[in-house]
Structure formats: C-alpha cells, structure tokens
Design a protein around this nucleic acid. Structure first.
Lengths: 235, 235
DNA sequence: CCTGGTTAATCGGTATACTGTTTATTCGAA
DNA sequence: TTCGAATAAACAGTATACCGATTAACCAGG
C-alpha cells in the first residue's frame, strides 16, 4: 500500500492516503496544495498531482477553497455497500482457503490489538488495528485486482468509521462481528468465512447509515444554530 | 462518461479514454505529453495530468519513453474476470428490473447496430456498438458506484476485444451471447438476464484468454525473428 | 445595526523553463 | 565488419510564475 519510492507525487499520495485511513483528516479540514507542498519540501505540482489523484479516485472533492474529504450521502453508503456485498464475502472465502500460516498469525495479532484497543477505549489504535486486520486477510487474496478494488471501497468509509467506534455499544457489536469472522478464519472454513462476512456486511451497512444519519442531523442543527448566532451577536 | 466541461485535463482525459475504448490506440503507440498537448493546443501540464490519471487507473503504464497502453497478462484477464463475474450479472439483473422504455429502446438500437456491423464485417463499428450496448444497460443501474466500477473493469479489455472481433467465428459467438442477453432484457426477466450474463462472462473470459495467448505467442515469435534479422544484415 | 457593493486574499488552473535519466545514434578503434 | 564508448535526443519529473475565478473581509450608506 505504501510506496514512498523515488517520486514525490507517490510519496505525497501515500502520505495523504495513510492520513485518510487513520482519520487524521476531518471533513472540516481544507487541503491546499501549497501547504502540502511546503510540508513536504516540494513545489506545488507534486502536491497538486497527488491531490488530483485522490479526487479522481473519489476520496476528495475539489472546492473553490482547497480540497476536502468527500462526505458520503446515505445513498453513497448504500451503493458502496452493494458493491462490497458482492465482492468481500467471496474474496474473504478465497483468502480463508489460500491463507498461509504467516497471514494467519498476522490476522491473530491484529485481532488481539483490536480487542486491546477496545478494552482501553483507544479509538485511534482501534482504527489502526482494524485497518491491519483487513489488510492481513487481503494479503491472502491472490487476485490483486480484487484486493485493490476491495481496499479502495473500504477506504471510502474511514470518516464514518470514526463515528462508529466513538459509540461504545456500536463499536462492541462491530468488533464482535469481526471476531466471529476471525474465528471462521481460524477454523479454515471458507464457507463459514463467507457467511459471516455477509452478515457482517449487512450489520456494518446499518451501523454506518445510523452514524451518518446522526452526523447529518447534527451538522444541520449546528448550521442553523450558527446562523442564529451570527444574526444576534457579532464580535 | 464524456465530460469535456471547462477544464483542459478533463477534456484531454475524456478524449484519450474514448480513443482507448474505440481501440484507436495500439500497444505499440507511445503517448507523449508534449504531442498530446500540441494536439489539444495546450501546454504539457494538462496532458501530463490526464496521462497520469490514466496510469493511476491502470489503463496506461509509464515507460522511460512515453506512456503506453497496459498489456494484460493472462493472470490479469482471469483476475479481472473474477471481479466482473461478481458484479455484472447482479447489476444487469437490477438494470433489467429498473429499466425504462427509453433505455430499452437504446438497447435495441445498439443491438441493431451490433448486428449490422457484424454483417458488414465493420470492426470499428462493431466495437463502438458494443460499447453503446453496455453503456445502455449500465444507464439503468441505479447505483453509480456499481456502474462506474463495472465500466472501469470493462474498459481494461478494449485492446483484447479488438482481437476477439477480428476472428469471425469468435465474434459471432460473442455477439450471439450478447443477443441472448438482449432478449432476456426484452422479456423483462431479471433472473434470466442474470443467468445469461453469467454464462456470457465465462465465455468471454475464455475467448479473451485465447486471443491474448495467441497475441503473446505472436509477439514472442516476431521478437526472436527481429533479433535474428538485426544480427545478420544491417541497413 | 443592517445591507449592499467594492476591494483584497485565496486558491485552482495553465504555461513555461529547467534538470536528470534513459535510450538511441554516431563515430572511431580493434 | 563489429564492438564499445562518447554524444545527442527524448522524455518524465519538478520548479516557478502568471492568470482568472471565487469567496471572504471591509467599508460606506441607509
């Protein structure tokens, strides 16, 4: 996933991509090419090309005032999950079939970290461990086109995932589903993995829709509140 | 699909994408940013950004001497078809369910053009009509993420498709499969569409693998032949 | 205070110029 | 004639500079 390699565009792209995965960029942030260029000690063009690539891949949107992370509508979430439902259960099943001991160990380690982070209520660690878990089983997917497509569709949800984990009860249900999938992997049972992943997909969709709906309501409220505020008192 | 809009990068990107779809770019062509810039009356940067976008989407590869269309390995073909098998039958079924009369008419018109082109042995027209047919049913796919993903995976095959259509017998079988799908659409039977699309996927994969295998063999032969030639006589 | 219009800042898009690396070519020596 | 080294050309990557559009800040008049 990370390829700093020798070229500035790729380096900046990977860096931004990682920050997106780790939810280190919030929807209110504005990414400006000159800032990113300065932060990386390069000129505007590499930063700009990295940003444009993220836009064309659907992670960012260009506004008239800097680039911002793309906010998912409820329809987006449903649509993205429709694709994920078609791909991930089957891919996970093939991963269960073709998994090496190394991958199995990585999966277990990631699951441990997930549960530890859950216990300590450490949201950033939870996000990171969650990404590790999925990357671990994706490694066992032999088809690189399949793996890349799935990885991409998962990454659209990082911003929403943050909200999911913030709520304790939802997080626990989410992690429980993950754990069930993990146990199916341990049993080396592709069909069980497939079924549990299917269930997980539906549960995750529902959770994300709930979270997003709440986010949208809150955004709406704070917007009207701010309007009222600016109308009354000015600094 | 085509959005010339107001910005040069998008305009050049759409133009190149269209040329790729129509197989107007061969694997031996070298796309150089300065040439493309000159052809569009712009500077290098927009052309370059369009090219880089096509690279990041997997349609082109950057070589040390210009950009070239990405050649698919046999593993690529199998892998890409594994994804297509998961997505297209189900998406086509939903298209059959949600299809409007307008889409139905468009589908019929495209099918007519396909058969006419087949009769006249007009390969470029066949390619174009084939693209029209798939775009027509994709219009009825309500989920834009699904449609975009499918569209993208289909476009990887344009270079190989040319080879498929060049062989009369293969082309006829391909078109027959398309026609059967079309009749299922006409019957408004989502399940029939799904099943026939599934069959079509397997047949198409086999055809593409055959064509590509032949291409690779021929390339190998001509390469050794050229080597021998340059060794003997120099101009 | 509120409103409307004018100015200033911000930022994306495009152009041009420069650099380093890779490949092709040419020319000379074996 | 062949091989290899020097040289030239091609091309991607990067930097800098300019322009135009959009938006925010500011100010004057109600």
């Amino acid at each position: 996933m990370a390829k700093p390699s020798d070229n500035l565009v790729d380096a900046i792209y990977s860096d931004l991509r990682l920050k997106l995965q780790r939810s280190m960029i919030t929807p209110s942030d504005r990414l400006v090419d000159t800032d990113i260029a300065a932060a990386n000690g390069s000129s505007r063009m590499p930063a700009r090309e990295a940003l444009l690539r993220l836009v064309s891949e659907g992670y960012l949107v260009g506004t008239t005032r800097g680039f911002a992370i793309r906010e998912l509508s409820l329809e987006d979430i449903s649509g993205l999950f429709e694709v994920r439902r078609q791909l991930e259960p089957r891919a996970a099943a093939s991963a269960a079939r073709d998994m090496t001991p190394a991958v199995e160990a990585e999966l277990a380690a990631a699951m441990d970290r997930v549960e530890q982070a859950l216990g300590e209520n450490d949201i950033p660690a939870l996000l990171a461990a969650n990404v590790d878990f999925r990357n671990a089983w994706l490694k066992a997917v032999r088809n690189p086109h399949m793996a890349a497509t799935i990885s991409r569709f998962m990454d659209y949800f990082q911003s929403v995932r943050l909200g999911t984990f913030a709520d304790g009860a939802t997080a626990e249900r989410y992690i429980d589903g993950l754990s069930r999938i993990h146990r199916a992997f341990l049993a080396h049972d592709p069909l069980m993995v497939q079924d549990r992943m299917t269930l997980f997909m539906f549960a995750a969709e529902e959770a994300y829709l709930d979270v997003r709906q709440r986010q949208l309501r809150e955004a709406e409220m704070s917007r009207t509140a701010r309007r009222r505020y600016t109308k009354r008192g000015t600094a």
